[in-house]
Design a protein around this nucleic acid. Structure first.
Lengths: 333, 333
DNA sequence: TATACTTAGTTAAACGTTTACTTAGATGGG
DNA sequence: CCCATCTAAGTAAACGTTTAACTAAGTATA
């Protein structure tokens, strides 16, 4: 049978309240002798506190929910790691939810998390989500969104990156290097992220006076498969392009594959810029020039912020727009 | 204030037991009318059951712990996805723990998981773990180990891959293709996984009568950094080698980088084989020949197995040794 | 008509903690 | 010596469920 606080109390010859107090370091009013005796019995019995019982009364589970589209997408492990490290430092634990960009799955996970009484949720919205469901709005725990934002919704906290500016700088760089026929393979355009990156792409052209480029947009879905296929498409249709600004690195790596297959050189024939700076961007040859997102930091900050919200700290900054950084490597000349 | 089963009972005019029964579909003995009325009130009030409270009495949290070294290592997201999908199908939820191959962190997570009363733990041991701590042995919930096993320990369940055979086949393939000077950059050799792969490497040479190769082993740590550095080392020390059998794909990709930098062609000058078949193996150019591990399936099976163990199903298979598969791509001739 | 059985519930204990409140005894001040 | 204060505990309610045991009313059986 499992040993409980009650057993410890009996064995030590004190009340359970006393045991509870020493466990929780509320022991200013406990004498050294009793405290040491309790501690000794706890150790000898291998007592492990039952946190579900204490959650019952404290109404805190010390658990956070992390909802992301897919941990298998290389952008997310870093972010998840950041969240986990931040949470862990404060003694919190993380429930992982992969929504697969599926709104229904997202909803059902959201409900599960509420049932499990998590103290807060860190949320990277499905790229298909454009609005909030009633279930979401009914949520009475803090939520902070990371990376992707939902237009028109006020969440408690928000951590994003300046996607428009990041894209703008990347495309400016391409233009400055002399590339003139840039195509953009984007993510799904109903997500704000993809829209913002496209907006940066447009503004760069506008400011540099390079036009028209209306048909230089190809909508993808952030996967390397579509990156590959769209690039193959461009080549086989003899489209005249000299560079690719990809909505993320996965798309860019798909493009790499297509170009390699067609024996087109990077960056001599075609320049490529990605977005995210996933782990592989550096490993691949040539190294992928890309817009770095501080994904680990985003996760870490999200954890910090949600913990502050949970503790009702005030005066905290509830919105962070982090800076991107252009990482110039070998895929651009 | 949060709405509880008690409110629902009052509003409907029945006892809380009745409400509980309809919630849990133990309603054979409940009339249609009351059931519908209860359901209606539940909906209208937006009632969400408090699973912490029910865990208290059922002694089930419907939560699993997943302990892995690092979700940031591309091998693990797939595995984690498999676990999550398996767990989710049965209404279970996953607590993610990254041990960083740090025994102390592993211990403290283990304790946390016990405190949170998870119903079972899926465990990929730290590569540094060679023995089980008392905390681990005290565990009174099912544990299944995936991928890495701990020598001399009997866990309830075990899911592995035949690493020796996978390595054997890979190295045989290299030898069959005419490669004769194969170096092996391994993982940390105190892990059984790394040892087994090395054993396969040795056996292949033995069976093909190619010897001696005692000094063809370089110990790495499963990171691309060491893969890169060791390869650079080989080249700069003018070691005579014609191919690399890498302990995992990350090492192999590090080697890619080194070889590209030194303008050495793959596979013409140097052939490379990796292990795992991570996502990138296919994307990279040339495609990486590698030993595929069914990581998603391993995770999924682990989830299945632990759920069976939790339910005390008997007659279940408690040990799976899955097959690897050599994926021949462009990095070998 | 008495008895047994069925139906549709209700009652109350239990799960393992935390915590506000109480208490018994010791100490100190006037 | 009496009252107030302090110290080191103990008491018991509460958290929101589940579930075994009970019950009251109706129905079928002999």
């Amino acid at each position: 049978m499992k040993v409980t606080i009650k057993h410890i109390a009996e064995l030590t010859g004190v009340s359970i309240a006393t045991v509870s107090k020493v466990i929780n370091h509320k022991d200013e009013k406990i004498s050294h002798q009793t405290r040491d005796r309790v501690l000794e019995v706890i150790k000898e019995q291998g007592y492990i506190p039952n946190r579900v019982a204490s959650s019952m009364v404290t109404k805190r589970t010390k658990t956070l929910g992390l909802m992301i589209p897919d941990i298998t997408n290389p952008f997310f492990p870093e972010l998840a790691r950041g969240v986990e490290d931040g949470a862990n430092e404060m003694g919190y634990t993380l429930i992982l939810c992969n929504s697969d960009n599926d709104l229904q799955k997202e909803e059902s996970y959201l409900e599960m998390l509420q049932e499990k009484m998590v103290d807060g949720i860190i949320f990277t919205a499905s790229s298909r989500r454009t609005t909030m469901s009633p279930a979401f709005l009914r949520l009475n725990i803090p939520v902070v969104s990371v990376d992707r934002e939902i237009e028109g919704l006020k969440l408690e906290g928000k951590i994003t990156v300046d996607n428009e500016k990041g894209a703008f700088e990347a495309v400016c760089y391409l233009l400055d290097q002399g590339y003139r026929k840039i195509y953009h393979i984007s993510g799904p355009l109903l997500s704000k992220t993809a829209k913002d990156r496209y907006a940066g792409f447009l503004r760069a052209h506008k400011e540099k006076g390079i036009l028209p480029i209306e048909d230089h947009l190809i909508e993808g879905n952030y996967t390397s498969i579509l990156g590959y296929e769209h690039t193959i498409g461009l080549i086989e249709n003899h489209v005249d392009f000299d560079s690719l600004f990809c909505g993320n690195d996965l798309i860019a790596l798909g493009a790499y594959k297509a170009l390699h297959e067609k024996n087109i050189r990077i960056p001599e024939d075609i320049g490529i810029i990605g977005f995210d700076d996933i782990y592989m961007a550096e490993i691949v040859s040539p190294g992928l020039t890309t817009v770095r997102q501080p994904s680990y930091i985003m996760g870490y900050k999200a954890a910090e912020m949600i913990l502050d919200l949970i503790k009702h700290k005030d005066g905290i900054q509830k919105e962070w727009v982090l800076e991107t950084k252009l990482m110039v490597r070998g895929s651009t000349k």
